[in-house]
Design a binder for these strands. Sequence first.
DNA 1: GACTTCTGTGAGAACGGTTGTCAAAACGAT
DNA 2: ATCGTTTTGACAACCGTTCTCACAGAAGTC
Lengths: 134, 134
Amino acid sequence: MVEVPAQQRSTRQRRAVSAILDDLDGFASAQQIHDKLSHRGEKVGLSTVYRNLQALVDAAQVDMIRADDGEVLYRRCNAGHHHHHLVCRSCGRTVEVSGSAIERWAEAVAAEHAFVEVEHTIEVFGTCSSCAAR
Amino acid sequence: MVEVPAQQRSTRQRRAVSAILDDLDGFASAQQIHDKLSHRGEKVGLSTVYRNLQALVDAAQVDMIRADDGEVLYRRCNAGHHHHHLVCRSCGRTVEVSGSAIERWAEAVAAEHAFVEVEHTIEVFGTCSSCAAR
DNA sequence: GACTTCTGTGAGAACGGTTGTCAAAACGAT
DNA sequence: ATCGTTTTGACAACCGTTCTCACAGAAGTC
């Protein structure tokens, strides 16, 4: 009758998505991840990829950013703390960066103009050395 | 025969979109602008609104940012220099801010990891004092 | 294993913002 | 007024994402 809170089940698809994220060292879109799954021979529906990525984002296991064209990109992210990204716009390779100076700047700016409940998005895009070499 | 490079023509629609932007003091989406035009009795096609906004962005007369949900927001922006925004997520009211410290930080971070052709997006969202009062 | 229950899946439809199409309208120069 | 070119707008197409819902398949129980 009164049963356990209902856990997440371990399914083949869930494991496959998670495995792809582990092998990725940069951001990738849901559709790119779906393609990679196909290439591995894993058949996973696109909806399922989206659902599981969203679940991982909710569980704070995956970071989510928005590319210039509006597409959403995902990346495994263990770090529990607040941070930003330096992303290669060509290969997606990513470095996590954090800067307390930035956080303080954002808060100061907001306070100066009496804004509350402040959030900020800071992402740095560039071309990494190996991509620039080509 | 060989004629002038072809100027932008002054059309009713173009003027109407521009007028709306002048009356706006925050960011608004293309569709919101389209609605405002309708309320004024100006009949302008949605495609035309998008086209003219894009043209203004290209002409550096309008700033463009992407909201959390991916929607694109526009705002008249005279300032020629590089800057960022402090945006009220409730009413769209916007303050232009610039911080050389931030620019230097972004460049330093990129240089440290040998990234080139660096760009950054920094937007601060919050609730402005008048919206917070409600 | 067999049975049950409830979560997860997937094919496809729907959605929402944006861009493309193309014939008709209209600007501006003559 | 006329002409050549740009601009417009109704509508379709696009594209990433979310929704729907019948069915598959975890995990618990006996």
